[in-house]
Deep mutational scan, measured.
Amino acid sequence: AMEMGLACVVCRQMMVASGNQLVECQECHNLYHRDCHKPQVTDKEANDPRLVWYCARCT
């Protein structure tokens, strides 16, 4: 999947907007926009540098 680069696995886009940054699952290393992931990634989750985030598939 490395050839995908830094794109969201849901929408396949790399564009990021304020409040909709890409977050990386620490287990599978897929990237998700906060708005694309279900459930939506919260501000607290996205902005906490100590948080280890896992996508819905890996939790």
Rank of each mutant, 00 (worst) to 15 (best):
Glu3Val: 07
Arg50Val: 05
Arg57Lys: 11
Ala7Met: 09
Asn47Thr: 08
Ala17Leu: 05
Asp35Cys: 10
Tyr32Lys: 02
Ser18Asp: 14
Arg50Gln: 09
Pro49Phe: 03
Trp53Pro: 03
Val23Leu: 12
Val9His: 10
Ala46Val: 12
Met15Ile: 13
Arg57Glu: 11
Trp53Asp: 07
Gln21Gly: 11
Ala7Ser: 12
Cys28Pro: 01
Gln40Trp: 07
Cys8Thr: 01
Val10Trp: 02
Cys28Met: 01
Arg50Pro: 10
Met15Cys: 13
Cys55His: 00
Leu31Lys: 15
Pro49Ser: 12
Asp43Asn: 14
Met2Asp: 05
Val9Arg: 05
His29Gln: 05
Pro39Gly: 03
Arg57Tyr: 04
Gly5Tyr: 03
Ala17Met: 09
Leu6Gln: 13
Ala17Cys: 10
Val52Ser: 12
Leu51Val: 12
Asn20Trp: 03
Cys36Lys: 01
Asn30Ala: 13
Pro49Gln: 09
Val52Glu: 10
Ser18Ile: 06
Glu27Ile: 06
His33Trp: 00
Cys25Pro: 00
His37Gln: 05
His29Ser: 07
Trp53Glu: 07
Cys28Lys: 01
Tyr54Glu: 09
Glu3Met: 04
His37Lys: 02
Asp43Thr: 08
Pro49Ile: 12
Gly19Met: 04
Val9Thr: 11
Val52Ala: 13
Leu51Lys: 15
His33Tyr: 01
Ala46Asp: 08
Leu6Cys: 09
Glu24Pro: 02
Ala46Thr: 06
Cys28Gly: 02
Val9Trp: 02
Leu51Glu: 14
Ala46Ile: 08
Tyr54His: 15
Glu27Gln: 07
Val16Ile: 08
Arg57Thr: 14
Glu24Ile: 02
Gln21Asp: 11
Lys44Gln: 08
Tyr32Ala: 06
Tyr32Thr: 03
Ala46Gly: 11
Cys58Gly: 00
Glu24Lys: 04
Cys58Lys: 00
Pro39Arg: 03
Ala7Thr: 13
Tyr32Cys: 04
Glu27Pro: 01
Gln13Phe: 02
Asn20Lys: 13
Ala1Thr: 15
Met15Phe: 09
Ala7Arg: 10
Leu6Ser: 15
Asn30Ile: 04
Pro39Asp: 03
Glu3Arg: 03
Met4Ile: 13
Ala7Cys: 11
Thr42Asn: 10
Ser18Met: 08
Ala7Pro: 15
Lys38Asp: 15
Cys58Leu: 01
Cys36Thr: 02
Arg57Leu: 06
Arg57Val: 08
Ala46Leu: 12
Arg34Asp: 03
Thr42Gly: 12
Ala56Leu: 06
Lys44Asp: 15
Arg50Asp: 11
Pro49Asn: 05
Met4Lys: 10
Arg50Thr: 14
Met14Lys: 15
Gln26Glu: 11
Glu45Thr: 09
Asp48Asn: 06
Lys38Ala: 12
Glu45Tyr: 12
Thr59Phe: 03
